[in-house]
Amino acid sequence: MKANIEKIVENRGMEDVILEVVVPTEIVVEIKAGKRKDKSKKIFPGYALVKMIMTDESWYVVRNTRGVTGFVGPGSKPIPLTDEEVLNMGLEKRTIEVDFEVGDSITVISGPFETFVGTIEEIHMERQSIKAILSMFGRETPVELEFDQVEKN
Rank of each mutant, 00 (worst) to 15 (best):
I8L: 15
R12P: 00
G13V: 01
L19K: 14
L19G: 04
L19R: 13
V22I: 15
E26W: 00
V28F: 00
I31F: 00
G34I: 08
G34W: 01
K35V: 10
K35A: 03
K39A: 02
K42W: 00
I53N: 10
D56A: 07
R63G: 01
R66M: 15
G67C: 12
G73L: 03
P74Q: 12
G75R: 13
S76Q: 14
K77E: 04
P80M: 00
P80L: 04
E85W: 05
E85T: 07
V86W: 02
L87C: 02
L87M: 13
M89F: 08
M89Y: 09
L91G: 04
K93Y: 05
I96K: 09
E97R: 10
V98D: 00
V98M: 08
D99G: 13
E101Q: 12
E101I: 02
I106V: 11
T107Q: 15
I109R: 05
S110R: 13
P112L: 02
F113A: 06
F113D: 08
E114F: 05
F116Q: 13
T119N: 06
E122S: 02
H124Y: 15
R127A: 10
R127T: 14
L134G: 12
S135C: 05
M136S: 08
F137Y: 11
G138D: 03
E140V: 03
T141Y: 05
D148K: 06
Q149N: 10
